[in-house]
Design a protein around this nucleic acid. Structure first.
Lengths: 231, 231
DNA sequence: AATCATATTATTGTATACAAAAATATTGAC
DNA sequence: GTCAATATTTTTGTATACAATAATATGATT
């Protein structure tokens, strides 16, 4: 019997391979906490869920494994690997250091146009703070940091920074909900721009390291609270 | 007809999945320059070459794509992506900065045992230099750097450093062949250890940044020579 | 001969088939 | 009832089958 199965959908320049689409979807599901640490990613269950065969699912899983989002035990399956408290703090520290590096390089390489973009992002951030628009704040905050990565003048480094930034996204979001954190974060942003404008690389590095370091601290504090609350 | 195909070999704790073994093999082939930039990784050719079907080959290819070693054009195939001169210099700069970060953190966290290990690695390095044993030098040099990564006290950061270090391995090896480079590199190692012993984080960071930065410079010089020689 | 349209082939992406290993259930001995 | 040994089921890993698209060849037209 010949089954007329549609292999892929060609809508615009969108995803073409099911495996790609599924890898992205699974990554998103893991990042948004739809899966717990240690959960097995059942191939046949996912195949049914996504309406495809096991083949594209398995290809997607390979990608998750290489990304470090999941772990593969041969002949046992693929299991999601959510970072624990220790690894998370390490990731925040690494993010702080990488941002500091970006800032140090950017201080000597940044363009006037990019400085103006940072100013605008901060302006929109301030507006978001006054109107208590967390989502808008988050968006402009992201633009702020991405601009600094790009202005490091090193696209490889910028790519690595983006990767980690994306990975930490769900955790960073949490600490932003803390009372007064948005306003404090804004002040830190101003200091960063001031350092960049002055072309002071050491100061820019310190400001960025502290800014991200505080995020990690706040997040750790949140986790501790959750932990003690659970006891 | 039933074919008695052996799925996998269980020799010791070795590789179990063909896909894993093939991914490693392909990565090695790309790193050692067996493939040129833009070469298509032909599924059926590789399948024949490795004596397996296309399925494990394709799973291996997914891994290469995520690692950034290859690029996938939907419906076209997977192509190896060797970093060009610009990207290579960016990678060296990033490596220098990451090593500097590791050194800065290590200066405040390193153990006496690790300091002794660095001293020993340098001693063996010096011996290798006098006996012109490039391989031995390379091995101890690697141990030196890996120890510093580990002593950053941040295993996530150390992992990232290891990744990039591994990626740059074939390129770093080249510049070591330059006249007097090994001796110069040794002196730089001594300075790094001195800074770490003194617990001077700024000095350790600078020493490591310069050390790796010089590697990048030497490599760039080599590339320029190759380029002009080709004209 | 050059160019465009069509036919052919090759290759990718997915589905299915099947063997090996792991997980689970069942049975039997004590 | 508990534990161990065997049987059954599930699941992984790989091979193969097949449809859709890309690449190439063929041929008609000028």
């Amino acid at each position: 019997m010949i089954v007329a199965h549609v292999v892929c959908s060609y809508i615009g320049g969108m995803e073409i391979r099911h495996a790609d689409r599924i890898a992205d979807a699974l990554e998103e599901l893991v990042f948004t906490g739809q899966f717990n640490d240690g959960d097995r990613l059942d191939e046949i269950r996912l195949a049914k869920q996504f309406g495809v065969s096991r083949t594209p699912i398995r290809e997607a899983l390979q990608r998750l494994v290489v990304s470090g989002i999941a772990e593969q035990l041969p002949r046992r399956g693929v299991f999601v690997r959510q970072p624990g408290p220790v690894e998370l703090m390490e990731m925040f520290e690494t993010m702080a250091e990488i941002e500091a590096v970006c800032g140090r390089l950017a201080a000597r390489r940044i363009s006037d146009a990019a400085l103006a973009e940072l100013d605008q992002a901060n302006r929109l951030c301030r507006e978001a703070v006054s109107s208590h628009d967390t989502d808008a704040y988050y968006l402009e905050n992201e633009r702020f940091h991405h601009t600094i990565y790009a202005q490091s003048g090193n696209s490889y480094l910028a790519g690595q920074a983006l990767r980690l930034h994306r990975r930490l996204k769900p955790f960073r979001r949490l600490q932003l909900r803390l009372r007064g954190r948005m306003a404090q974060s804004m002040a830190e942003h101003e200091e960063i721009v001031a350092a960049l404008k002055a072309g002071d690389d050491q100061r820019a590095a310190s400001a960025l390291r502290d800014h991200v370091g505080i995020q990690g601290e706040k997040f750790r504090h949140l986790m501790m609270e959750l932990r003690t609350a659970a006891e």
